[in-house]
Amino acid sequence: MTSLPVVNQPPHRCGALLDHLSRRMRLRSETVLAPLGLRPRHLIALTVLRDMRGSSQQDLAKILQMDGTNVVGLLNELEAANLVERRRSTVDRRRHVVELTDVGAKQLAKAEFALAAVEDEVLSGLSVEQRETLYELLHQATSKTDAEACAEGITNC
C-alpha cells in the first residue's frame, strides 16, 4: 500500500464554509418567505424602505444596486401586493417617492420573525455568545467598502 504524499496545508479558509452556510440559510429563508408571498429581493427592498422611511425610486435603485427598469418591476410586484405605494414627490413632480404601507410593515415584521426562527435553526450549533461574535465579525468584514478594500490593495480594482 502506498502512502499519500504529505502536502503543506493552507491556513483555514472560510469561503467554502460561508458559502455552505449561506446556501442553507437562503434555502430555508425562501421556504418561510414563500407563504408570505415574498422573495429575498422583496424583503431587502421593504427593509430599506422601512429603515429610510421611504425613498425616491432613483435612490432606491442606487441603494439596491439595481437597474432602474428592474426596480420598477420590483416595485410593481410590491405595489400589486399593497406592500408599498408610489406617489409623485411634492418637491419634484418628475420623481416618485416610494413608501411602505401599513400592510407592508406588518408583512415585513412577519417575515423578520420567520427569518429569526430560520437563523436560530441554521445556527443552532452556536451559543448565543458565539452568534453575537459571528455577527460582529461578519459586520466588521462587510463594513469595509469596495473603495477602501481597493485602496488597501485587498481587491483587484
Rank of each mutant, 00 (worst) to 15 (best):
L75S: 06
T69F: 07
G54P: 01
M25L: 15
T69W: 01
I44W: 01
D146V: 13
V6G: 04
D51S: 09
N70G: 12
A141E: 03
V91W: 06
S143I: 00
C150D: 11
R53N: 14
E129T: 10
M66R: 09
L46N: 05
D51Q: 08
L78Q: 01
R88V: 10
L49I: 00
M1F: 10
N76R: 12
N82S: 13
G37P: 00
D92N: 15
D102T: 12
T101R: 01
Q65F: 05
N82F: 09
E85Q: 14
S3T: 10
A34N: 04
A149R: 15
V128T: 12
R28N: 09
N70P: 02
R13V: 11
D67Y: 05
V128A: 15
Q9R: 14
R53T: 10
N8H: 10
E148V: 08
S143K: 13
A61E: 00
V128D: 12
H20R: 15
A141I: 08
L74Y: 00
S56Q: 01
N70W: 04
S127T: 15
M52Q: 08
P35H: 04
E85P: 00
E119I: 11
D102Y: 08
L75C: 04
T133V: 11
G15F: 11
Q130R: 11
T47A: 13
Q130K: 07
S55W: 06
L137P: 02
G15A: 05
R28Y: 00
T145E: 03
E121M: 10
S143V: 00
T31S: 14
S3W: 07
R95G: 00
L33S: 01
P11W: 08
G54E: 02
A61D: 07
R28V: 07
L17Q: 12
R131C: 12
V128H: 12
V48L: 12
N70K: 14
D146Y: 09
R41K: 11
S127P: 03
E30C: 10
E152C: 02
V32W: 03
S127W: 00
V98C: 03
S3G: 07
P35W: 02
T90L: 15
T101E: 07
M1Y: 15
E112G: 00
A147H: 12
V98L: 04
V72R: 15
V128F: 09
L49F: 05
E136A: 15
H139V: 12
S55K: 02
R50Q: 14
N82C: 02
D59I: 10
V71D: 01
Q107N: 11
L115Y: 01
H139S: 13
S56W: 03
D92P: 00
L100V: 06
T2A: 13
L100W: 06
N82H: 14
A151H: 05
M1G: 15
L17W: 10
R53A: 13
R39M: 11
T47E: 08
A34T: 07
T69Y: 09
D19P: 00
S56F: 03
A80Y: 06
L21C: 05
G37H: 03
L137Q: 10
L4C: 08
S127N: 07
A80H: 14
L75F: 03
L74C: 04
V118Q: 05
H12G: 12
A111W: 03
T133E: 15
R93H: 13
S29P: 01
C150H: 08
T155R: 07
I44D: 04
R50W: 05
R88L: 08
S55H: 01
P5T: 04
E152R: 12
L123M: 09
R95A: 13
L38S: 04
L75E: 05
D120F: 09
R39S: 02
D120Y: 07
